[in-house]
Design a binder for these strands. Structure first.
Lengths: 229, 229
DNA sequence: CAAATCGTTCATCCTCGACTGAACTACCCG
DNA sequence: CGGGTAGTTCAGTCGAGGATGAACGATTTG
């Protein structure tokens, strides 16, 4: 009757366990090699090739050659948003081990989502920025008032320059664990980069979880009056 | 390593063409019978039974018996949001016929999304309400100031009563065609109901597309200064 | 009660796609 | 230039799950 979007084709891409794990890993934000994705998905190199090609053809990831390596990354933040939306309604497998639940905690507290901050940290920072009127919320996107421009600038993020980029400037992304929006888009990516560059956060081994450093903790308290548990 | 949500199981549910069509139809908001879903999915009654059971087990739909009929509806608006998020990144099949493109136009202009208004109409109404400070945006949810409470009341929507309900009061839902947020949640459902009750919109045959009646057009212009194309 | 409608169960068939290993190509490095 | 690594192609196997019709159960209607 009507020409509906072809949800089934995307769904079948996500419906395979290996591909789903690959995509969740790519939600971490950085590009992963084909071999690494093979490990993550638990498949042979040849299998990984096939999966990556299907993901690429489906427009979920983009590939880039670096010498003999194939670097794969998530296509865009709409894809990331769709993954998070799906994660929100997906069944949560029971937590088994202590180590697992610790890893879960870390993930819930702070992580990267594609290329910006998410988890409690991402939501808290966004909320604080809005509260202090350094960011104006509304309409699924954010705007940056003058005070915000200088605040971001002080952190090393040139708002005007970020605004020039072709991708969405400052969109909302609804958090998978918190179910509340946080800053995404080019500005969210810039903020996350700055946090990493200044060593306010560092990546925990083996995933997209982040740890807030003590320097980060101090800075957040001083700058945004955020007291992280 | 970490206990990630089981995206693959949801994905495989959406990965089947018949189920995907059923779900898109259910995005219209009202409950559909098993037989109707069989038609929509293009499968035999027995096939529909199997599909519906899988969707129910996966938590995407809820079922309700009405005599010898089985009424199926979308489980909740998070599921609707996930479907829309997926639709946003899904490939759009090429429009073939004139009739199809007309149907597409109608869908883009105004439709129901689960149980609230979406499309240009949904976004425009939401924007107008925010602009007139009858609704306050921010943080993935909306709030209703005093002026809004009386405005909604005049329309026949009792905000305080709606607020009592267990489901989310007034969340944002990002539109699939417009890519902008519109009013969803219990309040969005109430608004849509009022629009239907007052015959401002009526459902077009065979889908979730809506037509704005001339009465609706007049009212929207008078009340919100909205001039629909 | 009989007939018709709506859905479910079951047994069976069959297709699609995921997986692998082996052979092959491309690239980096000593 | 050769050895090692990263990725790709291909052929062949295999299993999950989707499709179907026939028989049955439940419920409304005449």
């Amino acid at each position: 009757m009507t020409s509906d979007p072809d949800i089934a084709s995307v769904g079948s891409l996500l419906g395979d366990g290996a591909r789903a794990q690959m995509l969740l890993a790519l939600l971490g934000g950085d590009a992963l090699s084909a071999g690494r994705l093979a490990e993550i998905g638990g498949v042979s190199p040849s299998g990984a090739t096939a999966h990556i090609r299907r993901l690429r053809d489906g427009g979920l990831v983009t590939c880039e050659r670096s010498g003999r390596r194939l670097l794969v990354r998530l296509a865009n933040d709409e894809t990331a948003a769709a993954l998070e939306a799906l994660a929100r309604i997906a069944p949560r497998p029971p937590v088994r081990t202590l180590r697992q639940s610790a890893a879960d905690d870390a993930l819930r507290r702070a992580r990267t989502c594609y290329d910006h901050l998410a988890g409690e940290l991402g939501v808290a920072v966004t909320d604080a920025l809005v509260e202090r009127k350094l960011l104006r919320a509304g309409d699924g996107a954010f705007d940056v008032p003058a005070a915000g421009v200088s605040w971001f600038g002080q952190l090393g993020v040139d708002v005007e320059q970020v605004r020039e980029r072709r991708r969405a400037f400052a969109r909302e992304c609804v958090d998978w664990t918190e179910r509340r929006p946080h800053l995404a888009g080019a500005l969210g990516a810039g903020l996350a980069d700055a946090f990493v560059a200044r060593r306010f956060v560092e990546r925990l081994p083996g995933g997209r979880a982040l740890a807030v450093t003590s320097a980060g903790r101090r800075w957040l308290r001083r700058e945004l009056a955020l007291d992280l548990a």
